[in-house]
Amino acid sequence: MKDGATRKDTKVALTRLLFERGYEREDIVRLFNIIDWMIQLPYGLEPIFSHEVDEIQEEKKMAYVNTLERQALAKERQVGEVKGEAKLLKKMIISKYGDCPEWVQEKLNEADSEQLGAWGQKIFQASTLESLLL
């Protein structure tokens, strides 16, 4: 948790600098997106980070990334994580079963994180793709 707290503090400090440098809103959003991509926070620290950034905005009387934009960024990050999980599971399937048929790829594309995790745990016991995914 200490590492996460350090990352949060660093991310807050960098965000504060964006405001203090006097950048235009578009530049702040663009640079914030880069910072947000580079410094990922543990799930529990995101609300704390958002609150601290809201305080900076209030203090500086500037709008940075509004709530809808923040929610969209969080959704994009979540979608990216699910795609990464599906990609890893596909590699595991190919490694174990030698192939990844189209119907399997479709199931992977449609699955959520919880389902992908369950399949990932089950792959070591499943003798066939059908028994894994059905």
Rank of each mutant, 00 (worst) to 15 (best):
N33D: 11
W103A: 14
I28N: 01
K83S: 15
D3H: 14
A86S: 05
V65G: 06
M38S: 13
R77L: 13
I93R: 06
L108N: 00
I93W: 06
V53W: 05
L129V: 07
R21I: 02
D3E: 14
T67E: 15
E20I: 03
Q78H: 10
D36C: 14
Y64H: 15
L132D: 00
S95E: 09
A13C: 01
G4K: 05
D99N: 01
R7P: 14
G84I: 08
A126Q: 02
L31D: 05
A118Q: 13
M1G: 15
N33I: 08
E106T: 08
Q105K: 12
T6A: 03
H51L: 14
E58A: 06
L41K: 04
Y43Q: 07
R16P: 01
A72I: 13
D99R: 07
A111I: 10
T10I: 12
L129S: 01
G22M: 05
N33S: 12
D54V: 03
D112V: 04
F19G: 05
D112P: 03
G117S: 11
N66Y: 12
K91L: 12
K83C: 10
S131L: 02
Q105T: 09
E69L: 07
D54L: 00
K96A: 07
D27W: 08
C100Q: 07
M92C: 10
A72V: 14
D3T: 14
A63N: 14
Q71M: 11
V53L: 08
Y23F: 13
L116T: 00
V29E: 08
L129F: 02
W37C: 14
V104R: 13
I94V: 12
Q40S: 10
G44S: 14
H51F: 15
K107N: 06
D99P: 06
Y97R: 01
M38W: 10
K2R: 12
F19R: 00
K87N: 09
A74W: 07
E130F: 01
E85R: 09
K90N: 11
I28T: 05
K75E: 11
F124C: 07
Q40D: 09
G80L: 10
G44A: 14
T15A: 02
K96Q: 04
F124S: 04
V82N: 04
L45R: 08
L134I: 00
R77S: 12
G22C: 03
P42D: 01
S95P: 03
A13T: 04
